[in-house]
Design a protein around this nucleic acid. Structure first.
Lengths: 351, 351
DNA sequence: CTGAAAGCGCTTACAG
DNA sequence: CTGAAAGCGCTTACAG
C-alpha cells in the first residue's frame, strides 16, 4: 500500500526520525491529503477507519515525527511549557524540576527550563524568552513576580504558580502549608521539653519564610511560651547564615536548647557552627530543619525536618498545567506537612 | 518617521513584546521590505546606514522581538541547543547546568534541558525529542551513549560531550583529569602518613569512576605501597553505598586509617557510617572525597576533596558549542585538578 | 468525511 | 544595496 516516494535518505528510519520525513511525504504514501494526516495526528476531526489505518502505517514505515516547530507556527501550539525556577542547581528545586519533567513529558509536552536568578527582573526576562519561544503555558516555581503580574500573564496563557495562593482565571496555584509545618515542628520541640527554641528566619522576601516564622510564633503562643526576640535570628536560607546564627547566639550567651531553622540548608549550617563550638547535637542542643532535603539524611547527626514534597509538588504543578491546557479545571490537593524525626532532635536536658 | 500602522494592541510595548508585532509591521513602519529587516537583524548582508537607523528605531518603538519559532522553520536554525544530563537534580550536574544556561543565554541561544535518567535508552529518546525540536546542537553531559552513536550524531549537528575524550569532526569533548585528581588525593593521604587507605569505587559503568580508581592505584604503586584488595570496596556513587562500605570495613575488622571515596556523595555516606560507629574523623580515620560539592563545605567535619569545576565545565561546554555553531574550532582547556583540604583529613595517628 | 488553499512569521535565493 | 517571491512544515477555516 505504501509507495516510497523518494529513495530513503542517507540516515533514515528509526535512528533519525526527526529529519526529512514531512507530513506531505506521509500523505503521499498513504494516498490522502496532508490535511487528513494532520487531523488524524491531532484527533481534530473524524476520519474514516481505512484512511487512519493507511496513514498510521505510512507513519510507521517512514518513521515520521511531526515537526513541533512547524506545528507551533501554524497552530499556535508548540506543545512546550516554560518552567521558571530560581536556579537550576538548588537541592530543593531540583526534585521539583524532576517531577515536572517526568509528568510533562508523559503528557506529551516538552518543558523549557529557565532560571530567574532570585531576581524579579531576570525572572521577567526569562518569561519573555519563554513567550518568544511560544510556550503554551508557564509554570513558575516560587516566582518573585507580583500577583498582578502573574494574573496579567494568565490572560495570555495558562499559568501555574507554586508558593502562594492565588485565585484567577486560567491560573492555578499550589501552596504548601508552611505555617502548619512550622507549627508542627515547633510543637514537637515543645513536646520534647524545649522552651528556649531559637528560630533562624528565611529570606523575608519569601512568603514561605514569613509563614514558617508565623508557625513558630503561633506554636509558642498556643502553649503559653513567651517568644524571646533574642532567639529570633535573621537568616537568608543559605548555609552560612545558619552557621552565623548559632555562632552569634553562642557568643551573646543567649540561652537556648533547640534551634529551628526555616530551611534545611540553614540547619546544616547551624549544625556546623555547633560542631565548631563543640556543642553536641542533640545532647546539648536539638536542631530542626525544614524541607527535608536529601542531604539531611546524611548530615551528622541526620537531620529532623518538615518534609516538603518537592518531587510531588513538581508533579502536581505539571498535572495542573496539563489540565489548564486541556481546558479542564485542575484540582489541587497539596500533601499535608509531615514531620520527619531523625537524630538531631532529642529531649531537653536543661533544668 | 514611524507611522503606526495599527492601533496598539491591548497589552503592548515593553511588557509584552512577544506578541503581535511581526517583522512585517516593523518593515512597514520603517518603510522598507521585510527582507531588509531580516538582513539587519541577522547581519546577513550590507544595508545602508539610514535604513538600519529607521529599522532600529521601528524595532524599538514597536518593541519587536523576532519569533524564534518562525525563524526556526524558515532558516533551519532555532537558536536553541539541547542539553542532555543524567538527572535534573544532582548536586554535581546542577552547577554544570547553571554554567551552561548562563553562557548559552549570553550567546543568544536558549538551552533545552532534558534528562537521560542514567539510562541509554532514555537518553536516546531524549535526543530524539531534542532533534524533533530542531535544536541547533546538543551538549551531552557524561552521556551513556557509545562513542559511535555520538560521532554519528555529530554528522547531523554539532555535539559537545563531557566525561570522555573523543576526536571527531563537528564534535568537541571535555574531559576532566580524573586520574590525576585521584592520584593527587591519594598522594596527599600518603604524605600524611596513611598507608592503609580504603577506596570506595564509583559506578563502574562510568569511565570517570574507573579513572579515579586507576589514580588511587597508581599513587600507591608509585610510592611502593601494596594495594590490598580488601581495602577496595565497591560503591555506586550514592550516599548509602558509602555508609555500607565503611560499615563493612569495620565489621570485617579490616585495618584502615583513611578512606578515599570516588565521589563526595559516598564520602558523606562514609562520614555517617563512621559517626554511627563512633569513629572520629579525622582523629581516627581520615576521609577524602572527590568532586567538591557545595554540601561538602557543610559536612561534619567539612570534607577534603578534589575540586571538580562543575560550573566551569558547563561554561566551557557551552562556549565550545557556540564555537562549533559559528564554525570556529573550539579550544578547550580543562582546569587542572585541585585538592581542597578541609577538616576531614589529618595526619595518620596509627603506629 | 475530505481536499485545496491560505496562512503562521520568518529567511533566502533570485533578480535587479 | 534592496524587493518580490517562494518556501520552511504544519494547521485550519472554507467548501464540498
Amino acid at each position: 500500500m505504501i509507495r516510497r516516494v523518494k529513495p530513503a535518505p542517507a540516515s533514515p528510519g528509526a535512528g533519525d526520525p526527526a529529519r526529512l520525513v514531512t507530513i506531505d511525504m506521509v500523505a503521499r504514501a498513504a494516498e490522502v491529503s496532508p490535511s487528513t494526516v494532520s487531523r488524524i495526528l491531532n484527533g481534530t476531526a473524524v476520519v474514516s477507519a481505512d484512511k487512519i489505518k493507511a496513514v498510521e502505517q505510512a507513519i510507521r514505515e517512514l518513521g515520521y515525527v511531526p515537526n513541533p516547530v512547524a506545528r507551533g507556527l501554524a497552530g499556535g501550539r508548540t506543545l512546550s511549557v516554560g518552567v521558571v525556577t530560581q536556579t537550576l542547581d538548588s537541592p530543593f528545586y531540583g526534585s521539583a524540576l524532576r517531577g515536572i519533567e517526568a509528568e510533562l513529558l508523559a503528557a506529551g509536552y516538552t518543558p523549557l527550563f529557565i532560571s530567574g536568578q532570585w531576581n524579579e527582573r531576570e525572572e521577567q526576562h526569562s518569561i519573555s524568552v519563554l513567550r518568544a519561544r511560544r510556550v503554551d503555558g508557564i509554570i513558575a516555581l516560587d516566582a518573585r513576580l507580583s500577583d498582578e503580574a502573574l494574573i496579567a500573564l494568565a490572560r495570555d496563557l495558562p499559568v501555574v504558580v507554586t508558593g502562594r495562593s492565588l485565585e484567577a482565571p486560567n491560573l492555578a496555584s499550589l501552596c504548601f502549608d508552611n505555617f502548619g509545618g512550622a507549627r508542627q515542628a515547633t510543637d514537637y520541640l515543645l513536646d520534647l521539653g524545649h522552651r528556649r527554641i531559637a528560630f533562624i528566619t528565611g529570606d523575608p522576601e519569601h512568603q514561605d519564610a514569613l509563614e514558617r516564622q508565623r508557625g513558630y510564633l503561633g506554636a509558642l503562643a498556643e502553649r503559653g511560651v513567651a517568644a524571646d526576640p533574642r532567639l529570633i535570628i535573621p537568616g537568608d536560607y543559605r548555609e552560612p547564615s545558619g552557621t552565623q546564627a548559632v555562632l552569634r547566639l553562642l557568643k551573646q550567651r543567649v540561652d537556648f536548647t533547640a534551634v529551628f531553622a526555616a530551611n534545611d540548608q540553614m540547619a546544616l549550617g547551624a549544625l556546623l557552627g555547633l560542631y565548631q563550638k563543640h556543642v553536641s547535637v542533640p545532647q546539648q542542643v536539638s536542631v530542626m530543619g525544614f524541607d527535608d532535603l536529601q542531604v539531611g539524611q546524611y548530615s551528622i547527626p541526620p537531620l529532623s525536618s518538615v518534609h516538603q514534597p518537592g518531587l510531588e509538588t513538581g508533579r502536581l504543578a505539571a498535572r495542573a498545567m496539563s489540565a489548564l491546557l486541556e481546558g479542564r479545571r485542575p484540582k489541587l490537593r497539596m500533601p499535608t506537612p509531615r514531620l520527619v524525626v531523625r537524630e538531631s532532635t532529642g529531649r531537653c536536658a536543661a533544668p
